[in-house]
Amino acid sequence: MSTKTDKIDRLAALTAQRETTTGGSLWVEAFRRLRSSKMALIGVAIMALFVVIALIGPWIAPHNPTSQLWRDEVFTNRGEFVGPRGENWLGLDHLGRDQLSRMLVGARQTLLVGVISTVLGFVVGALIGGVSGAALAFGGRAGQRLDTVLMRFIDMMLAMPSLLLAVSIAAVMGQSLTTVMIAVGVVQVPIFARLLRGSMLSQANADYVLAARALGVRRRRVVMGHVLPNSLGPVIVQSTLALATAIIEAAALSYLGLGNPDAAQPEWGVMLAQAERFFDEAPFMAICPALGIIVTALGFTLLGESMREALDPKLRS
């Protein structure tokens, strides 16, 4: 009997039980945590539903959203609005159009406005913020100057009330859907720029960045390979939250009459704007698009919040 091998085998068996599962990269782990979060699942479900509707809406809509099929019914009984009924699940609007069809078809426009304006804000904001952060952290004296100029510009944008900014842009560019997208996107620019810059500056002071510089890694590689990837987390989270605000803001612009000039085209914000006049008589007309906007925004916000949690390195076990 060999006690020594016995000993080793026994110990190996006992320690093996406690072997922890090996994790993957930071993103893989974040994704794993995200999957186990209820909040994220609800957010994703809402988002998926919204996207599916936006994609197939025109085909599943029971009626033509622009034709005033029940026009006579609404017009003859002046002030008598038709609420939900068997034929029109969500009732009719003030021109006798089917609300459900308008909701289903309008989802696409709403999504388009949200996504395009957020992408616009993200790209321009990240560009300014990224250049600014990199310049300040690694650009020496000239970089500091560049950063100061860029940031004062951003500060000026931030100082203006966002809706006012959007209104002025819309006023200059004329009334169109593109205007709404650009206006909403521009409003997001300073937020993304500030966020990425701040995130990059804090990462630039991290020990591993110092370590990379000490290794003799080139400056460009330090910024692109270390600082930027580690700074993107909060910006990505912000973009889901921004999507929610973008939809609401686009709705607000449409409500103010700066949206798509073709008012017949359904869009949730436009629908909300049109319903306002009849709110006393027909609250359901406003409730449908309002609820649509709120729930969608909630979905994006839930996803954003749970992503923030999943990406937080402090919560890693």
Binding site: T3, D6, K7, R10, L11, L14, T15, Q17, R18
Partner: peptide, 24 residues
């Protein structure tokens, strides 16, 4: 991290130069 549960034996055994079967 090289540790075993106290229920299984002495938690320090994996790091100990002198553990015996009795320790487990």
């Amino acid at each position: 991290n090289d540790q075993i549960a106290w229920a299984d034996g002495c938690a320090f055994a994996p790091r100990c130069d002198h553990y015996t079967l009795e320790c487990l």
